[in-house]
Design a protein around this nucleic acid. Structure first.
Lengths: 205, 205
DNA sequence: GAGTCTTAAACAAACGTTTATATAACAGCC
DNA sequence: GGCTGTTATATAAACGTTTGTTTAAGACTC
């Protein structure tokens, strides 16, 4: 009878399709505001497949968070943990991050907006990633800064400050899109990256 | 019979109690993640009272957003729309805002974290507030800045940038609280305000 | 008695998760 | 080449809760 089942070729994409749609919907309605039925139907997948692949809705969220944090951390390592002047390294880090945030803006929104949810499991999960990020910034930015006679700033202040500043465009985009029209078109990503880079370099100097 | 009804004195507090608990829970579980039954029972109020006072769950959210935006806008008007040097005015604005964000940190989290939810009604609501904020910044910061020979920066970039920077501590607090312990105690609010103030003043100069 | 506040009960709808069953691909064996 | 058991993927249906909202009636103040 007419049970339709994907071939293995098509099936290979199911898991990725779930993640892609989940990121989009979580960013728009929030995690709690997204139902698994809406998610599965938009991904063209049976409802039960989500629990099959990810164990639970929370498992799906964790996988999304992990993807984002891993990439963000990789950029920090690549750009900051190398030879060269602080200023130059920071500039590369900022440009790399802004481009990354733009390409992964929905991931970014999920990661930041689901921040304060008091599920201890999720918070602990995020804290372990943040811990590594803070350690890099402490070693590669804060310490060199005082060594060069610059300002003293705690990594637990600088980390959030840097991230929030670079993310500001994407964080406020849904509202700014409604505010902008009568003023001007949106700045290009390159202009934005340059503005943020200049701002942050002045800031820490 | 034993129907217990508050006296009018006690009742006068019901609406305020709902708002107070709602802000707290929305900040912790998110808007969609907070059930009206949890909310009403924690506020010591009957479930139906929420719809009685606010019409709907969304109406309650709107009232919370309005409270926050109105106060934030009031600070901007008070500190920026007056005689005096740009630098000095900005410093007052930053200090005032940081203190306000600290006192209303749960409001802040709700306002920012519920930002991207694609409910057109909510977005439009926020946009009208943001519009006024951007107008003030354009007139009181961006224009004087170029007049003084400073940098050119669009208000739709500066607004989010300023707000995100000042909010960074509160935005990341739930995670940073788990990261910090092995490093150091949290900086005092005064230290934080000073750090942010110095950073931002350098940034726009 | 009018008006404001409060209550318990009920509503249909949506929620995350689990179940039992079915299909497809591939392995080893004859 | 055909048969078989295994594994991974897919499906529809049902599970018991919980959701936001509405209703009709009661209590209190003035």
């Amino acid at each position: 009878m007419g049970k339709k089942v994907n071939t293995k070729q098509e099936a290979a994409g199911s898991k990725e399709r779930i993640v892609r749609v989940a990121v989009k919907l979580f960013a728009r309605h929030g995690y709690a505001g997204t139902g698994l039925r809406e998610l599965s139907s938009e991904a063209g997948v049976n409802l039960a497949m989500i629990n099959y692949f990810f164990g639970s809705k929370k498992g799906l969220l964790k996988e999304i968070l992990d993807t984002f944090y891993a990439k963000y951390l990789e950029i920090a390592r690549m750009e900051l943990e190398q030879e060269g002047g602080l200023q130059e390294k920071l500039e590369h880090f900022i440009y790399g991050t802004v481009i990354f945030f733009d390409a992964y803006k929905d991931y970014l929104l999920v990661t930041i907006n689901e921040l304060p949810h008091d599920d201890p499991e999720i918070i602990e999960h995020k804290a372990s990633w943040a811990q590594m990020m803070i350690a890099i910034m402490e070693k590669e930015i804060c310490r060199p800064l005082v060594a060069e006679g610059g300002r003293v700033i705690s990594p637990t202040v600088l980390g959030p400050l840097l991230t929030a500043t670079m993310a500001s465009r994407f964080l406020f985009a849904p509202v700014m899109d409604r505010v902008r029209p009568e003023n001007c078109p949106m700045e290009s990503l390159e202009e934005y990256a340059e503005t943020i880079s200049i701002s942050l370099l002045k800031m820490i100097s």
